[in-house]
Design a protein around this nucleic acid. Structure first.
Length: 490
RNA sequence: CGGGGUGUAGCGCAGCCUGGUAGCGUACUUGCAUGGGGUGCAAGGGGUCGUGGGUUCAAAUCCCGCCACCCCGACCA
């Protein structure tokens, strides 16, 4: 089967690419570093959006939309922010083209912009500039806004979904009257992300904070969720930042409190992107293709008829429609594929590759016996089921598949999480099987940088529920109060 | 931006060294058979050989320039 398709063992990154392109999720576009998200891939993204959007609204947020372009001068207002993004910005300098004498289309040099526009790599600056006029009083707070948007970061090397020059995401930007409230907001949204990752993506995540090195440009504290991929590398799946008063000061956003005193507003921002698609793909898929958790699968069940004659097909059409209706009545997403242009075996392989969680095959034999054949994508088990009460059996199975995927990913993470105490152990682990490596660290930027230089491993996070423990830094031997999580990362 | 590699049918590739009718697999179209795991047989359509120049009677093939993409580094969600 799938002989032209790479396995994880042979070439992990080719395997990933093959799944993305051959399962029709996305492909490279004519524009360097930018992808085309194909209908099947986009429908999974839409599922994610729908769930997250509801979670945001349930926690009191509203959607709004801010411009794609940001005046260059805005970036100079928050020093560390510009430093973080300056090297990867697309800049608009002109607003008109013209036809040159040789017939070619060229930029009209007369149409140079007075001030260049930056294509947003993130929207803090334009949003905080706007918030200045929205916020006067404590009565205007908290301001809880989310935006679904595209952003551009001019990456040197790109990979479908994991790192593209343009990507889709949501960015929440909130304003609060007190420090504590903003910190609580940042933590709340981190929990929303973790909840989403675990209950929908079926992906266990570590919740933690970033070290200073890895912190978002302009943040006081960056909270994150970190997931482990099947090749032992970590993937940052979402971040939530406590921004303090940095942006309020940079954009002069003040409010008058109950006491009549003016104070700068406290801020958060938080985001997840189409990178989650990459996480989803790498977390569960196998050498037979994509594996989707039922909660996010565009089709949860596919029904394939097996027949020889038109009469047989007609009977199967009736039975399949009946089954489809009973499933849809329970809110299950079903596709009945009775195309005559492809054979059953072809369809089996196709839907397997595309990760459809459950397949029903039904043929003349089943019509006689009152049965169907059910095949699970996650375990590849096949079994014959009586048609009686089939919809509820399937509903139950979908639930099982969802939790099985989570459990599998969780035990993988546990098997690939290690504690190390010496430099030698650390290097062996990072360069061997990888995974999350808990080790003591002296807490300095310099040490983290040296470790990164030597091993390519970075501190993924300092877990929120970390237990305190005396120890010695694996590199410098200086005292440490807790272990932090190291890994090589995407 | 440094190192390596590749551009030939929609996709994957051979041909290039040693210049002389552009090929294979797959996909596509048609017909017949087939139908419980990518079906078989037959016929057919599809190419400015990345691009510009040079050498030659003759260039996919040799020479020079350019462009694009991929991989490995540095940078990053």
């Amino acid at each position: 089967m799938s002989k032209d398709f790479s396995t994880r063992e042979e070439n992990y990154s080719k395997w990933y690419n093959d799944i993305v392109t051959k399962a029709d999720l996305a492909e490279n576009s004519a524009v360097r570093g930018c992808m085309v998200i194909k209908p099947y891939g986009y429908s999974i993204w839409e599922k994610m959006q729908a769930v997250l959007d509801k979670m945001f609204k349930d926690t009191g947020h509203e959607n709004a939309y801010f411009p794609l372009f940001i005046p260059k001068s805005f970036f100079s207002k928050e020093a560390s922010h510009v430093e973080g993004f300056a090297k990867e910005c697309a800049v608009v300098t002109h607003y008109r083209l013209k036809t040159a004498p040789d017939g070619k289309i060229v930029v009209d040099e007369d149409a140079k912009l007075e001030e260049e526009l930056i294509v947003r790599p993130t929207s803090e600056t334009i949003i905080w500039d706007t918030y200045r006029s929205w916020i006067q009083s404590y009565r205007d707070l908290p301001l809880l806004i989310n935006q679904w948007a595209n952003v551009v970061r001019w990456e040197m090397r790109t990979r479908l979904f994991l790192r593209t020059a343009e990507f889709l995401w949501q960015e929440g930007h909130t304003a609060h009257a007190t420090r504590q409230e903003a910190v609580e907001e940042a933590e709340k949204m981190l929990n929303v992300y973790a909840d989403f990752a675990e209950n929908f993506l079926a992906l266990p995540v570590l919740k933690g904070v970033k070290s200073e090195n890895e912190r978002f440009a302009g943040a006081i504290e960056t909270y994150c969720i970190e997931a482990l991929m099947q090749d032992g590398k970590a993937l940052q799946a979402g971040t939530s930042h406590f921004l303090g008063q940095n942006f309020a000061k940079a954009f002069d956003v003040k409010f008058t409190g109950k006491d009549g005193k003016q104070e700068y507003v406290w801020a958060t921002s938080w985001g997840v992107s189409t990178r989650l698609m990459g996480a989803l793909i790498m977390a569960h898929s196998d050498d037979n293709g994509l594996v989707l958790p039922p909660k996010l699968a565009p089709n949860q069940v596919v029904i394939v008829p097996i027949y020889k004659s038109d009469e047989e097909l007609a009977k199967l059409n009736d039975k399949a429609s009946e089954i489809k209706k009973s499933l849809e009545a329970l809110g299950i997403r079903v596709k009945y594929d009775n195309r005559d242009t492809h054979k059953p075996g072809w369809k089996f392989a196709e839907y397997e590759f595309k990760g459809v969680p459950l397949r029903i095959a039904i043929g003349p034999r089943d019509l006689e016996n009152g049965t169907v054949e059910l095949a699970r994508r996650d375990t590849k088990e096949k079994a014959t089921y009586q048609q009686t009460d089939l919809a509820h059996k399937i509903e139950h199975l979908l639930g099982q598949i969802q939790s099985n995927l989570y459990q599998k990913a969780l035990s993988f993470r546990e098997q690939n999480t290690t504690n190390v105490d010496t430099w030698e152990e650390f290097v062996n682990q990072i360069e061997g099987k990888g995974g999350f490596v808990y080790a003591h660290w002296d807490g300095t930027k310099e040490t983290e940088e040296t470790i990164k230089e030597k091993t390519k491993a970075t501190i993924r996070c300092i877990p929120l529920d970390n237990k305190k423990e005396e120890g010695k830094c694996i590199l410098t031997g200086k005292p440490s109060t807790q272990r932090v999580v190291f890994a090589r990362a995407y």
